[in-house]
Design a protein around this nucleic acid. Structure first.
Ligand code: FES
Ligand code: FES
Lengths: 134, 134
DNA sequence: ATACATGTAACTTTTGTAGTTGCATTGGTC
DNA sequence: GACCAATGCAACTACAAAAGTTACATGTAT
């Protein structure tokens, strides 16, 4: 796992969970399977919990579980939960004093924003349960 | 300049050049203007030269010049010359032994590749001369 | 009480990129 | 020919973002 590893990890994990929705998984199980560290798993899945895609329970027999039916979790849900913005950048234009810079920024940002939207749109058309039979 | 700084630098510079196509600019001039280093400028513009967008001349009175009319250089030309792939990744899937991993990879990569294409398409609709009057 | 899980903060390691330095090469100018 | 000013390029350093790691507090079933 290298680039977009957060997204990879999240999708990978959710895909597995979509297969056996009732099974509870610990961060360690997931980390072992994904070849990473439990803390990293908790960091990533924590985002998904905040977004309402997963639930977690502490203590003995605790762990992670899907918060909804797998059919109701789209790839876009995951993408957005992680605050990924593969295309557009969130940066505020610092000092667009010059008009050329300003025009350029405006035009390019516009295109990127459109593309970002259509990416989310495309991702929303697939659920994590569908992905297994691609 | 932070993220996508290569692309920013390239577009910024070309936009200026589109304004005064006949003027020769040195790496130092450009670097001063963009708040960076001449060597960085040469690295980035070198890519554009390889792609046939710019020419450079050594020696006294040398420097950079547009290789084509500004109307004939699109944002996509620049994007592709820099080998930017904002959306899709070029990585070879390492060991897609597992079927779930495989399916996931296939589906997601597919979407990303589509989006990458439509980004290039959108960028190809604007030339560096148009961008000034946006 | 104990064992096992998450939650989180702080630190270290890794990695990609910009920035820098130094020098060879080329081509005008005197 | 001597000199100056430009690119070309390689090697190194500096920096920042992300992953990975360690340590510990908190919660919960048995
Ligand atoms: S400073 Fe305005 S475009 Fe260069
Ligand atoms: S998807 Fe997890 S190992 Fe195959």
């Amino acid at each position: 796992m290298k680039r977009n590893s957060r997204l990879s990890l999240a999708l990978h994990t959710l895909s597995h969970m979509a297969g056996e929705p009732d099974r509870v998984r610990t961060s360690s199980d997931i980390a072992d399977h994904a070849g990473t560290n439990p803390v990293v798993v908790r960091r990533v899945l924590g985002r998904l919990r905040e977004a309402g895609l997963l639930t977690s329970e502490k203590g003995h027999a605790g762990g992670w579980r899907l918060a909804r039916k797998p059919q109701e979790i789209s790839l876009a849900d995951v993408y957005l939960a992680l605050d990924e913005r593969l295309v557009a950048s969130d940066e505020i234009s610092e000092a667009p004093a010059c008009s050329v810079e300003h025009a350029l920024q405006k035009r390019v940002s516009g295109v990127l924003e459109e593309i970002e939207q259509s990416l989310v749109q495309k991702l929303s058309e697939t659920s994590i349960s569908e992905v297994r039979d691609a």
